[in-house]
Amino acid sequence: MSLPQPVPPSWKDLGKNSADLLGKDYPVAGAHIDIKTKTPNGITFKIVGDRDSKNLITGDIETKYTDFKNGLTLTQTWTTANALKTAVELENYGTNGLKLDVATSLQADKMTKGAVFSATYKQPGIHSRISLDAVKGPTCTVETAFGLRGFVLGSEAAYNVGEGKVLRYGLGTCFNAPSYAATILALNNCKTFTASYYHRVSSDVEAGARATYDNKNPSAVNLEVGTKA
């Protein structure tokens, strides 16, 4: 009898280990700070800040409250761009593995608003998400990843309902093992190609590499290599 398949990573998490290592954990064009604390009653505070090579500083202050008994999570974020973001998530709504969430945003100085409604479904072997941006477009985005014995195949497509056209699409595949992962992505309507590799050498050492090819610049391949100890 075959073993049950784990839930595969989401489309956006394909290649996440190497992306985090080469981005968050290995900032080469500025500085990054990430601080998280948790109160005894379960409220989490998170402060994230970035300074780029031009000394431009951006940051977020996030407050999150989770009601584990009812599967409800409320998150509010205030950014240095004077934007207030609110997200409400409801886990296992109606059926096991289904999550519903609503994310809203308000830019106080410009009075611009945003609202995105999403549904995520996770089961062994499948991880799917559909979202509707009610303000921009409106735009419907579908992301799906299928997994089997460490192999994952994923895709994404965004459709502008108002204009009746496809905005973007992409494909990706990866292989995940306990100590390493290899990923190939075709993004931006399959015009940008990325191949990445991540290896946890030991409990203290990580290494990663990523190569990117863009049709806009066919004569060059961008190569990134990093390690963390």
Score class of each variant (00 low, 15 high):
195 A>H: 03
42 G>R: 10
214 D>V: 00
109 D>N: 15
219 S>N: 15
145 A>R: 00
204 D>G: 10
221 V>I: 15
58 T>G: 12
33 I>H: 04
96 N>T: 11
156 E>W: 04
207 A>E: 00
2 S>N: 15
37 T>C: 06
36 K>G: 11
112 T>A: 02
197 Y>S: 09
20 D>W: 03
60 D>M: 05
122 K>Q: 13
13 D>R: 05
177 A>F: 15
206 E>S: 07
53 S>K: 13
147 G>P: 13
175 F>A: 04
128 S>C: 11
47 I>Y: 09
198 Y>W: 12
146 F>K: 03
149 R>N: 08
190 C>G: 02
166 V>T: 10
10 S>I: 02
55 N>F: 00
48 V>Q: 10
167 L>M: 09
57 I>C: 09
98 L>A: 10
12 K>H: 14
176 N>S: 04
85 K>T: 06
100 L>E: 10
37 T>A: 07
179 S>Y: 13
201 V>S: 06
178 P>C: 09
218 P>F: 15
139 T>M: 05
27 P>T: 05
99 K>P: 00
195 A>I: 02
74 L>D: 09
91 E>R: 13
222 N>K: 14
28 V>N: 13
170 G>I: 01
166 V>W: 09
32 H>F: 08
216 K>A: 11
121 Y>F: 13
68 F>A: 12
146 F>P: 07
129 R>Y: 02
123 Q>M: 12
152 V>C: 07
106 L>T: 09
187 L>V: 02
124 P>S: 04
56 L>K: 08
78 W>R: 11
132 L>V: 14
195 A>E: 02
32 H>D: 00
131 S>E: 13
62 E>D: 07
135 V>P: 00
59 G>E: 12
7 V>K: 02
5 Q>C: 01
131 S>C: 08
87 A>F: 06
169 Y>T: 03
156 E>Q: 12
132 L>I: 12
213 Y>K: 11
202 S>W: 10
228 K>G: 01
67 D>H: 12
226 G>F: 02
99 K>G: 05
192 T>F: 07
137 G>M: 09
185 L>A: 04
224 E>Y: 11
191 K>D: 15
31 A>K: 14
83 A>M: 12
172 G>A: 14
142 V>S: 11
23 G>A: 03
166 V>K: 15
33 I>Q: 07
4 P>A: 08
160 N>Y: 05
173 T>A: 11
46 K>F: 01
185 L>T: 00
66 T>H: 09
169 Y>H: 12
180 Y>M: 06
46 K>N: 14
69 K>W: 00
28 V>A: 14
